[in-house]
Design a protein around this nucleic acid. Sequence first.
RNA 1: GGAGAGUUGGCUGAGUGGUCGAAAGCGCUCCCCUGCUAAGGGAGUAUACGUUAAUAGCGUAUCGAGGGUUCGAAUCCCUCACUCUCCGCCA
Length: 427
Amino acid sequence: MLDPKLIRNELDRVAEKMAIRNVTLDTAKLSELESIRKQAQSKAESLQAERNAASKAIGQAKAKGEDAQPILDKVAALGNELKAAEAASSDVQAQLAEILMGLPNLVHDDVPAGKDESDNVEVRRVGEPTSFSFSPQDHVDLGARGGSLDFEQGAKLAGSRFAVMQGDVARLHRALIQFMLDTQTQRNGYIEVVVPFIVNSDSLYGTGQLPKFAEDLFKLNVEQEYYLIPTSEVPVTNLVRDTLLEADQLPLRYTCHSACFRSEAGSYGRDTRGLIRQHQFEKVEMVQIVRPEDSWQALEDMTSHAESILQALDIPYRVVVLCGGDIGFGASKTYDIEVWLPGQNAYREISSCSNCTDFQARRMQARFKNPDTGKNELVHTLNGSGLAVGRTLIAVLENYQQEDGSVIIPEALHAYFGNQRVLLEND
RNA sequence: GGAGAGUUGGCUGAGUGGUCGAAAGCGCUCCCCUGCUAAGGGAGUAUACGUUAAUAGCGUAUCGAGGGUUCGAAUCCCUCACUCUCCGCCA
């Protein structure tokens, strides 16, 4: 959520920033609502003040044994007017809150304008696309060996966009999770957490998935309002919801392995082949809670932490900064890391690292005591994938494949495979 | 799932219709005193929102959440959430 004061005082600047996201702000309607709000709230509050004063006077009169009836008569007349004023005030405030909750974060000055992912700007490229002396297969064909990666079984058990892994592929999947968690905790300074994969709606409002993106979520059909998490960003970031942190607790760096569940409504026909886009996938997430002045450096650091996984695995990738049309709702600036997939002959997203500034913190009321100002201030929150496990598995299979369809195990993963050095050796 | 007890400020905890945004203690901050030191004395110490140049005043709201009764609710009523104890079930 944006600072309501920003809407009041710098409406034009907010509108300019929204334009970079291709979001049109109805400034005329907003300023009209705002002036109604001001008037309605003042009126309701002054009537409340009047009632409170009268009530106090009644109490005092009764305590002294005086007749309180004249004041009672007077305050009775206030009743309906007060009720109406309160209703009007809360009505207009609800309208403003609804608009505000639907507005995305302000983008950073670095964010380029653009309409979709084709306008994202490449920042750097690490490694060269893997070259092969033969025609490389994609992960679906590679994984078909021995039913190691089985989409028919997934469809039988659940439906489309589900998969079953077994044998070497299942083990590679597990090894990648271990490797990522070990790297983030031992090398990059994150604390590992295990959190619920089901959350309530408060948590989803906190990180911004609700109210706007309900259709992307799996909602449980039970009495309580429960949702499957679309990413562990939701539970992990919400660890600091409604919390007042001490300055010396910051920065907090969490990493978390979880399953992620996405309905993928609106993605019909996209990435229907293979493991790229599934209803359920696993991810190792990074979340940082930092002081506001540190968040931009933290974004650079976190992006490099995600990159460190691909560097260790020695898989080529590039980093892009997302344009206004592609950046997520809560983010002020986002770097996507795109990994080279020989099977698609393209770079594909494997991580997304975002600085959400105070956008989520305001929704969550996540604050810290700033010793410099003596005030309680909103923290900044960041999140990034470190990395998406399924897509990393695709990248390993496709980049490390050999002509006979087997796959060499990257050196960084040897510790998780005993003496084994090759996957999918036997047809 | 059954029965019972709870949810108050950074913490402990009092408060069952009216000067209660809330006693007391602890903690913390500042000041004072003191060569006997896990000492003493004093003052201060919730948050959000509105108004405002203001972190000055003033106002509003908040005692788990939401609703109700009342001129007035931490206190009474209803619904919900969560915590604890015992029983049952269970990975």
